[in-house]
Design a binder for these strands. Structure first.
Lengths: 251, 251
DNA sequence: ATGACTTTTGGTCAAAAAAACAATAAGTAA
DNA sequence: TTACTTATTGTTTTTTTGACCAAAAGTCAT
């Protein structure tokens, strides 16, 4: 390794970490609040939605906002994120991923609160959110119809959406979002909703099948007013493989 | 927008945000410390390095670590990040991007300190880091030779590297990292170092030139013991365009 | 000055992937 | 039986990629 500078004596203007840590001035530096805000995306009937609350308390009483809460001083952040999501949707087993931290000095009227954003993606039909501690009501709002949000939540949502799309392009998604048996058109509708694009049906089919990810169930749709589509299910093994290795989906 | 549940009365177990904010118990929740850790990548002579310090104070005295510092309660996080970087390298005008937050309860012996990681990328030749407040010494360490680091800095570095590579694949990089005039081979060496891959020379050339990003300077290298290469410079206008729109670089 | 050597540069070519689109199949509904 | 709708398969064309060749333009040693 190349040393660029000779070692120099430590300068007089020390940081708080340059003094013995037991001497740190707690009052001065340890006065941040930490919160988590959850961006829960939900998929339902070919549409992408996001879970919002109507705030039942100050500040921003009555405003729309992302569900969030303060983290306890002895609680890990991911734990807090899962706690909040669970309180809200009753479920815990699903992926939650951090996007960014938001820490503007004046972002919260109650003091210096920095917040960590997490996002996840669930099948709306399978979960039943309920108003709780935080909110008067919890609502699934179509992405196209999101109103202005409290705090800096507009920005948080925007960033989370971008991260979600980024992720969806490189990791398969679906197990939790589609029924056990589904048609290729369902999968296509899912991707079209997530990425907000439109694909050619025939080519989409070829691409997906080439991934070797689906099991042909030799079974067809019922009760559709047209030619019924063949049903498929995910090949769990191959699916996990792709999640680990990643893939590219730039149709 | 679809309402999933009727509004319910707010439950008895309220979160701290569900009460008037002036009633928040400050002692209980507002006791986090916030720090920033900087992952400064540097490019020099076809190698990618990272700026590390040798800690001059407890905890982890004598260990290698990423440069970082506490954020002031009235200071924005990005401002803190730039302050730290500036103290360390003397420069301020360059991109710094957040990667993640790290907030494990026990990650810091001095208390509950959560840290935000930022990364950036500079030309080593153009900057001269110096030991300062935080450290006995500051060193450029080749990525292949990074020792074990203090705190959770190994993880932070790993994540930052991944994010850097992700970004480099989708946004052009170069202005700050190459001299005004450079040969295509220089640009190729840069990408090979950043992404740790090897490309075919002829095809690399075609790809890059097709982007319409370079200006042919009608001027050649001097003093090389072989056929001198044509020199190019970036087309500033086109460069900014690509930074805004993004591009794909999956050679 | 000549040939050896090195890297640049321009080009070809085949293989692979993507995109566009045409034709047929399998149902329902009237 | 025909009209209608979506599914499915297949073909064709175009674009992109990857591998590789050979000439070009210098330096260097002899």
């Amino acid at each position: 390794m190349a040393e660029i500078k000779e070692k120099e004596p430590v300068l007089e203007q020390k940081s708080q970490f340059a003094v013995p840590y037991y001497a740190i001035s707690y009052d001065k530096f340890f006065q941040f609040g930490l919160s988590v805000d959850c961006v829960v995306f939900g998929y339902h009937e070919k549409r992408l939605k996001v879970l919002l609350i109507k705030r039942g308390a100050e500040p921003y009483l009555g405003s729309w906002a992302l569900p969030g809460d303060l983290v306890y001083p002895n609680e890990n952040i991911e734990v807090a994120a899962k706690r909040i999501l669970k309180d809200l949707t009753g479920i815990s087993e699903l992926f939650m991923e951090q996007t960014k931290v938001y820490g503007k000095v004046d972002r919260h009227p109650a003091g210096r609160v920095i917040t960590t954003a997490y996002y996840s993606l669930i099948d709306i039909a399978k979960h039943d959110p309920h108003a709780s501690a935080w909110a008067e009501g919890v609502y699934w709002v179509d992405l196209e119809e999101v109103p202005g949000l409290a705090f800096d939540h507009d920005e948080i949502l925007e960033d989370a959406l971008q991260t979600l799309r980024q992720r969806v392009r490189h990791q398969p998604v679906g197990f939790e979002l589609l029924p056990q048996k589904f048609a290729l058109a369902d999968l296509q509708a899912l991707y079209e909703a997530l990425l907000n694009e439109v694909y050619d049906k025939a080519n989409f089919r070829k691409r997906i099948l080439a991934m070797n990810l689906l099991i042909n169930l030799k079974e067809s749709q019922k009760d559709v007013p047209h030619r019924p589509a063949r049903l498929y299910s995910f090949d769990k093994k191959r699916y996990d493989e792709l999640i680990a290795k990643g893939f590219s989906f730039e149709l």
